[in-house]
Every structure is written in C-alpha cells, then in structure tokens.
C-alpha cells in the first residue's frame, strides 16, 4: 500500500513553502521533517504541553493537533520567525535571555510564539495577566517565575522597539 500524497503550500515565516505530504502528516512533523524547521518541539503530541505552539494566521495553535493539509493556504509563524528581520533576537526572545526564562530550552519555542501573539492582543499586561497568558504551556525546568518576568520585559522591549524613533 502506498499512501496518497497531497500538495501543501504554507507561508512559513513569510516564505511560501511547498511539499507533498500524506494526509495524516502532522503540521509539526511537516515543519520539522519536511521543511527542516526544527525550532518547533514536540513534548506530548496530545495537545497539553504547548511546546509545539505555532501561530496560524497570527493565532496560537498546537501543531501536534493539526494536519499539514489543514494549514494549506495559511500563514504559519514558528519560533524561527519570531526574530527581528535582520536575524537578531525578537523582543520576546530577548526578554527570555535577560530574565533567564529558559533552562533546557525545550518548552521555550512554544512560550515564545504564545507570548508573541498575546502581546499583540494585550501590549501592557499586569503580572497576573502575564501569568495567566502562559497558563497553557508546560515547563518542567523554570518554575515559571522568570517566564512571567519575561512576558513583562518583552512587552516593554516591544513598546521600545515599536516607538517611532525621534
């Protein structure tokens, strides 16, 4: 038996990417194996840990719970796409560095994407809101305190970077 393959075109981090994949290929596996974008991680493959979170047309989705074929024609942003255009660390990434918001770094991509989307909605969160915002992602290393701090710092950095230059 040979599996039928389907053409999928997804704009990943602003670049149109095309591949032929079986219908059951997970979006996460498509990104990692077919496109070689290994920044997206799989921690549970059942939708709980959030490590695999990517942004689909700007909104966080769990790429372990979605088929690549369902992303056909959509925009996907991964952690690789959360950098500044020139390749420097984006505001959320920079905030994680400054606040020691990661240890092993395995859960981190899912936090980066989740927080990136969140700050678009709520650019000035309180500490409590920041904690709530990351309440759907698991981290086994950090105890979250520094990630909460990173959310607040990222909001600050984002505002600074987006402020019109004098």
């Amino acid at each position: 038996m040979t599996e039928q393959r389907h053409q999928v075109t997804v704009a990943v981090n602003g670049v149109a990417r095309r591949a032929e994949v079986p219908a059951r290929r997970l979006l996460a596996d498509f990104l990692r194996a077919d496109l070689g974008l290994t920044g997206t991680h799989l921690g549970c493959e059942h939708g709980v840990c959030g490590a695999c979170t990517v942004l689909l047309d700007g909104a966080p989705v769990r790429s372990c719970l979605m088929f690549a074929v369902s992303a056909d024609g959509h925009d996907v942003t991964t952690v690789e796409g959360c950098r500044e255009p020139a390749g420097d660390l984006g505001p959320v990434q920079q905030a994680f560095l400054e606040c020691h918001g990661l240890q092993c770094g395995f859960c981190t991509p899912g936090f980066i994407t989740t927080i990136t989307a969140y700050l678009e909605e709520n650019p000035k969160p309180t500490e409590e809101e920041a904690r709530e915002a990351i309440g759907g992602n698991l981290c086994r290393c950090t105890g979250y305190q520094n990630i909460v701090a990173a959310v607040l710092r990222a909001a600050e950095l984002k505002r600074e970077r987006e402020a019109p230059h004098e």
Binding site: R32, L37, T38, G39, T40, H41, L42, T78, V79, E80, C82, R83, G87, L89, Q93, Q94, F96, L97, E98, H100, L102, G105, F106, T108, P109, I112
Partner: peptide
C-alpha cells in the same frame, strides 16, 4: 546572562530529534 541562550531562543537548538 547565559551564553547558550541566543541559539536556543532563535530555534537553533540541536535536540536529538
């Protein structure tokens, strides 16, 4: 600050898989 972080934060970590 940790030297290893920029690489991990960009999504350039090299985990087993």
């Amino acid at each position: 600050l940790r030297k290893e972080d920029p690489r991990l934060l960009r999504g350039d970590g090299r985990y087993l898989d």
